[in-house]
Design a protein around this nucleic acid. Sequence first.
RNA 1: GGCGUCGUACCCAAGUGGUAAGGGAGCAGUCUGCAAAACUGUCAUGCACCAGUUCGAAUCUGGUCGACGCCUCCA
Length: 467
Amino acid sequence: MQLKIYNTLTKIKEDFVPVDSNHVRMYTCGPTVYNYAHIGNARPAVVSDLLVRVLRFLYPKVTYVSNITDIDDKIIKASDETGVEIGVITAKYEKIYNEDMQSLNVLKPDKQPHATEHIDDMIALIKKNIINNKAYESEGHVLFDVSSYPSYGKLSKRDADDQIAGSRVAVASYKKNPGDFILWKPSSENQPGWDSPWGFGRPGWHLECSAMSENCLGIPFDIHGGGMDLVFPHHENEIAQSCGSCNEGHNPQAYVKYWIHNALLNMDGEKMSKSLGNILYIRDLLKEYPGEVLRLALLSAHYRQPLNLTKDVLAQSQATLNRFYRNLNKNESIDSCSDFLEYLPNGFLESICDDLNTSKALASLNEISKKLSSSSSSEDKKKFKTQLLACGYILGILQEEPRQWLGISNGSDSADSKTVEQLVLNRDTARKNKDFEKADQIRNVLLDMGIEIEDSPTGTVWRKIKK
RNA sequence: GGCGUCGUACCCAAGUGGUAAGGGAGCAGUCUGCAAAACUGUCAUGCACCAGUUCGAAUCUGGUCGACGCCUCCA
């Protein structure tokens, strides 16, 4: 199956043709670790994770790299404000980020490099840019000279000159051109820094991704991902400095072949941002919803469409997953095939290979789920259950034990369970005696305890529900 | 000022030239003591509006209106 992805660089949906079809290489910008991860941070991670799962299905070897940025002015600021050491802050929030991603079923990247471990690579990258006349030193800073790179602006479709008129930034005195950006800047005594040919200082904020992606993957590599807001200036600058380091003036694909960018998350139609104070942290959402619900909500719209994250959307995702899990639970006794990925149905694959059309893929899941519940032969049931689990795996959902997801008792012998079991038995007795008033009364008691019951031909099952 | 995205039913959301996927909610029904679940049926002669191109337009072109993003830290 041919994977197609929309390439921000060319502005069209393209057939994905890897540089080396025996080894696909991908990089996605990871977090700057100075605060809790919010749900917006999760979108690129989830989308990249989905793409990686698809690539792993299609190609023999995939290396996926996503970084941790642990040196940055935002972190310095957070440290100044709280008095907490930088290393303590970054270690804390990196751990939290990874835990949160795990709860969203995001598989860990093959490599998760830290910016502070690649300062040497960054210095080497700057040196190459200076040698190639792409960068210059000025007042202790090293800047990239955008006028030296003819393809500057190709990714974001921007012309530097056109932007100056409306620019809201004062041009620093040490810049030759207003669009020049910092590769290295001086640090004061009490700021973090490293010795370099240009004095004690620290890297500019685009450099780490160029250095780490090249170090971990080599260039050119196949896919670079991130949020739409990174297209300019972050990714534009990455291309400039990486191409500058190998003295490639015209072809941005000397660095990366395909650029993919996810649209941003909205809250009530407005972007999620600190200044608007409408940030939803993953930590907080996880108190109310399983991570899988958050993941499905993020995948319910196409990744290049803005997504308005509302209670409604989350409730719908919850309902969808409940329905699938109930269906799986009903067919618990049916074994699925262990090599389940071999059973991915074509319709699903086509949708997902069409620039990750998750909405359409979800329609396939519904179809399969329907077939599973309506088929009568165990052979068919096995086939459709396997398909459902296989599609679920690619999407990163449906891998939990259905009974556990639904909160159905396993006959565990906790005191609580015993009470419930006894009440259920009492109700069944009442029902047999046609004492429906008593039966309903017991049901209400159970409901107050947060227990929902379902009568079925094979007996009554109960499960814990959220109050 | 420059660049760009979007507007599809009550809600979410695919579809980008061949006559509107899917899900949720609602309604009707089957089943059930009831409930829940499941299943079946129903739910946009129309895709912001206007004009044009075409045998044919949600889809292409031009315009209008509306919402939003980037150019400044951001995923």
